[in-house]
Design a binder for these strands. Structure first.
Lengths: 223, 223
DNA sequence: CGAAGTATTGAGACGTCTCAAAATTAGTGG
DNA sequence: CCACTAATTTTGAGACGTCTCAATACTTCG
């Protein structure tokens, strides 16, 4: 099932096993592919692995009993996810598009962390940046209008995945809505509104390629 | 300004310096009092100390430029707050009522953590529980109704500060609203509604002492 | 090219917010 | 301790933003 791969990809972000993200950790790495829509791990499942997106995109979410969904984060190329302190995962993680992940056995990581204080420090700083993102997102979900939420989303994605001026969103309107605490219709309407104001353009024949025309106006909308 | 105190209080929770929360750390501890409404630290201020509530209650919040406020957490007796990985605080912290805190210099704590892996582990697990709280709160803020939010709030506070069956809330309706992403009127109406249904009672002549009459019905409301 | 999935747009419903007033509680100084 | 004032809470009525439901358009994929 798991294929051992150590081939170097020529991609920008720092990957597990390269001496950065998780220092010069001697952890066993594998790669695995998930096709669009499949689950990487489920909420409350034992947290056996830690993952990093090599290619594609992943959403982590929680569900209420009646199906309402809150996406806590999108994981894009280079992002590490599924890192838990406790025994089980607190989110469900699904591939948004066909996705390749690199994975490390959690117990190995913990073993290395015990020996190497730098690795332990990396674990803390990753957890801290997750916390920081969650804190900012609470402000968005609790207090921002739909326009402010969508503007914040666009700016976040712009900074994380824009290549050559074009932002190719992997996620659907529904995913965006569940991330922003809105409905997909409200997201769609708000994007149309921003397009109408000349702040962004839709590119080609897909609605998921977006070009930001006026970042500073968007930034003003995101208080 | 800071008074060195090592007197043992006879209170329930484990405190800094007692061999639990932060292991057998040899950190210098002081106590300090903040009167109702005063700021303990501000957002983006250098994070020089880590705090623990000895008596009273604290709110941590973020503000938007126009004054909208999102409270990220309430810190009650025993809770540690102001723990940062980065150089600065990401929230403003204010005393809700007259409050006594114990505080430790952050650099000392880091120094100890470097020497003692158990302390380092405690730091990570504290950050993780903050993260876990934030993740649950994102679900609440993004997807729950006002009734579900208030029910969740009551159950959270019930588990954290009920003494002798009575829950003495230190925070105002406005604080609750800013925690739940609602307005104070909606919080008040929702509490009235729950009272009307016989799920809770208001005690004495204050509106901040509440007795939960039917926890299981409340739990059903909090999906 | 047809079918399924996704996005847009519209119209009306609904939940929460806003504004306002009254009731209650807390705080202050005599 | 009381009287007075300020602050907080409750309650009401109407406004507003987002949601729901529905229809249409567009894109993707077999």
């Amino acid at each position: 099932m798991f294929v051992n791969v150590n081939a170097n990809s020529a991609v920008r972000p720092k990957f597990l096993g390269e001496h950065d993200g998780l220092s010069r950790a001697q952890v066993i790495l594998s790669e695995f592919k998930y096709s669009r829509g499949t689950e990487v791990f489920g909420e409350a499942e034992p947290a056996e692995y830690v993952y990093q997106v090599v290619e594609g995109a992943v959403r982590s979410y929680k569900l209420l009993s009646d199906g309402r969904r809150q996406i806590g984060a999108f994981h894009l190329v280079g992002d590490i996810f599924g890192l838990e302190n406790g025994a089980v995962h607190r989110f469900t993680a699904e591939a948004i598009v066909d996705t390749t992940v690199r994975l490390a056995k959690r117990v190995n990581l913990e073993h290395v962390a015990r020996a190497d204080a730098l690795v332990a420090r990396d674990l803390l700083s990753m957890t801290t940046s997750n916390l920081q993102h969650a804190e900012n997102h609470m402000l968005l979900l609790g207090r921002k209008t739909s326009l402010e939420r969508v503007a914040a989303f666009l700016l976040e994605m712009d900074s994380r995945l824009t290549a050559a001026g074009v932002m190719a969103l992997p996620m659907s309107r529904r995913d965006i809505a569940d991330y922003l605490g809105l409905t997909l219709e409200t997201v769609s309407r708000t994007l149309s509104c921003l397009h109408g104001k000349g702040l962004l353009d839709f590119l080609g024949q897909t609605q998921r390629q977006i070009v930001l025309r006026n970042r500073s106006e968007l930034a003003k909308l995101d208080l």
